[in-house]
């Protein structure tokens, strides 16, 4: 859906679903998931449907991700750091 961004010299190396992905500095974790080409980024804990980022500005909560083992993070509100591990959020987080 989005064109692969040109490789920046200061690209940040993160891990999305276990795969290394280089993303532009300043990208959010949700943007990294989109660049990695994930078809969806979570499943709804209510309906089980696949969902993906919708608003990218902290409103819709569709981009909930597991970031560095911390579940239910708003992916669009977290800026990538080198080595960040980003995973899909399957249903509700475990308590």
């Amino acid at each position: 859906m989005f064109r692969k961004p040109p490789e920046a010299p200061d690209a940040v190396l993160v891990e999305v679903e276990g795969r290394p992905v280089r993303v532009p500095p300043g990208a959010s974790a949700a943007a990294a998931a989109l660049i990695a080409g994930l078809a969806s980024t979570r499943t709804s804990p209510v309906t089980g449907e696949p969902r993906a980022p919708y608003c990218m500005m902290g409103v819709c909560f569709e981009c909930l991700l597991v970031i560095d083992d911390e579940p239910s993070q708003q992916g669009c509100m977290v800026t990538v750091r080198p080595g960040m591990r980003i995973r899909r959020q399957e249903g509700a987080r475990e308590l």
Binding site: R3, P24, A27, A31, M57
Partner: peptide, 16 residues
């Protein structure tokens, strides 16, 4: 997605 979401991706990291 929303148009605003795509524009945020463009403004922040140049994604088109």
């Amino acid at each position: 997605m929303s148009v605003g979401a795509a524009q945020i991706l463009h403004k922040t990291i140049g994604l088109v």
